[in-house]
Design a protein around this nucleic acid. Sequence first.
DNA 1: AATGAATGAGTATTCATTCAT
DNA 2: GATGAATGAATACTCATTCAT
Lengths: 195, 195, 195, 195
Amino acid sequence: MSKRIDTSKIERIRNAAIEIISEQGIHNCSVAAIAKKAGVSVGYLYRHYSGKNELINDMLEQYFNTINEKISSLITEKHGVETIVEGVIRHILHIAQGNEAKIKFLIMLLNDFSVTIRPSLTTRVDALAEELMVMVRNSHHVRQDLFPEDLYHAMIGLPMQYLALHYNQIISCVEYKEIDADHVVAQAMNMITIK
Amino acid sequence: MSKRIDTSKIERIRNAAIEIISEQGIHNCSVAAIAKKAGVSVGYLYRHYSGKNELINDMLEQYFNTINEKISSLITEKHGVETIVEGVIRHILHIAQGNEAKIKFLIMLLNDFSVTIRPSLTTRVDALAEELMVMVRNSHHVRQDLFPEDLYHAMIGLPMQYLALHYNQIISCVEYKEIDADHVVAQAMNMITIK
Amino acid sequence: MSKRIDTSKIERIRNAAIEIISEQGIHNCSVAAIAKKAGVSVGYLYRHYSGKNELINDMLEQYFNTINEKISSLITEKHGVETIVEGVIRHILHIAQGNEAKIKFLIMLLNDFSVTIRPSLTTRVDALAEELMVMVRNSHHVRQDLFPEDLYHAMIGLPMQYLALHYNQIISCVEYKEIDADHVVAQAMNMITIK
Amino acid sequence: MSKRIDTSKIERIRNAAIEIISEQGIHNCSVAAIAKKAGVSVGYLYRHYSGKNELINDMLEQYFNTINEKISSLITEKHGVETIVEGVIRHILHIAQGNEAKIKFLIMLLNDFSVTIRPSLTTRVDALAEELMVMVRNSHHVRQDLFPEDLYHAMIGLPMQYLALHYNQIISCVEYKEIDADHVVAQAMNMITIK
DNA sequence: AATGAATGAGTATTCATTCAT
DNA sequence: GATGAATGAATACTCATTCAT
């Protein structure tokens, strides 16, 4: 083996970070704790990230980009807006089933206004939103008064909202029920399609 | 005046706290900074709250309860579900205009899963949800397949989502546009009313 | 007793700092070690100094100023240049006898060019130098080609040089001999008086 | 060429080290920074020096020895004490003009009492001092009450003192003036010659 | 009751040193 | 021989909490 960056270590760092953050919040998540959980030295972490902030921002960008890639691939596959929205919602709920921490991390960070989102991420989201808006204009079943943000809410905000409620339990009756993907998709459709 | 707890001091503490937290996040908000901004001694703060956590939880409960009270009063006024949903949305967006920090604080805390929501709050929300569900069942215009959480999302989650996007700027084009309350209300209606 | 800044604690911090620094150097002198040696908490230290740098700079200024004050008082007492130079030399050697660490600290700091000397200190030294230069011009026994820096070297640099050699032992034969104040004074006189 | 230690690399390491140390102090000079500036791997550095301390001590010895060699060669050339003292002073000031870092490094280290000077250096200095003292005893123009340390101060301490004041700017008026070698030599002569 | 001085555990980050390649 | 990735102890500094006044 040549001396090469051990990607599994980086992966372990990321996993450790989202697990700790999703359970204990950004504050209460120390670099030392991440390193320990990842089975990596603190110094190693700092050789790959310039600091805690960069690590978190990188992860936010990377994980959000998995959603962006899903959107991208659905666009490439020539699906219609409705199918794309449905696909993204199911994708997000699917991730949540396999890796609760990942989605918790995303929801927490997107709603922590002390975190500054990188321009590179915004740019990418903007570009996708624009592509989708073009499709909207060519679609008969989709409301024509939609804004890019409406698509964002239908595809991403809505499923995340359902998940957040599931996690924070502010309505207790939701507790152990699985989230019904069909139901969330139906609500999203209500938001974007013509009655 | 009798020797009573000086509510104005408590109020100042709360206001100082949400302002600092909404701007800099929970972890960059020190108790000393809150006390200083509130013009109160650190010791005073600790005589009324057992610690930083209790202060934050108290505030979360109190501020969320202003929304609950709005719902309660609308129910008392014998409005229908749709009117209530609309009223709550407009209420939230109205608060946001007058006191951005308050809503930012609520959004941040409701999406920080390291914060444990007090049973007393959950109980209250559950009770209101149940009352609303009863109204749903008696309403012809409202979907009968709704769950309590759907009402929550329509009334509270949705406007907060619009605000969050406004604050975190993950779609940049939303930047300086004011949030259109009518549009948010319309989307909420799409979610809960029969087409 | 009223709540007042405990000056003895500050004094203990300073003493701890010069002792550690004079023995182990600026690097190798940690804030924690200073606090521990002073019998004070780290937090206490930080309530009085904005950081390690400020502490060190403050001490440098304060200790150098004890020399400045000596010069000042000798000027006020209407002594001639030669008497002043002699007085300052004896003062420095006297301090060294009672508190080796203090002088070691001063010598180390004045010769560590990574330490930036505060303008307030420079200003004071400049002013005293100017006063002395006026006296020089009115004195018949003193060389007229002297620069302010020559006075500095005669009064301060020279005794400190003798002490430094005593401490660093680069000439071993000096080792246990006491520094002969008369000898140092004589050398200083050779530098400033007319043959 | 045979497999021999690559002296140019060692030289580069030393040059890198004094440059960084003279600008930023010992404690802000990391081994990694030295190696990088020298274009050498950290591991290479450690194959030749047992650690940072040894590197610094070696450099101190080597650079101080360039002065010793100057003294030695002047002795060999049969110069008198006065000529030797003058020669050394001019040598030091000359080095300072061409390589400020080298002299700064020497001054800093000689006045940092946490640095232990190696016996090998002390021995050499003592030997030279003894040789010079013999010359002193045979010279009519030179004071007979001089100690070895007086010679040290006249030759080495004094010019370094002038340079230190130039670097630390504790008297600001010295700022941009070049150091006048003749003046320093004259002061040294005042210290060692009979009036 | 009210204050804010004092504490010290906890944090992010750096860097001398080692050692597998 | 050379390298530089990896380590983890050490450091400056912060801040929730306590308690004497």
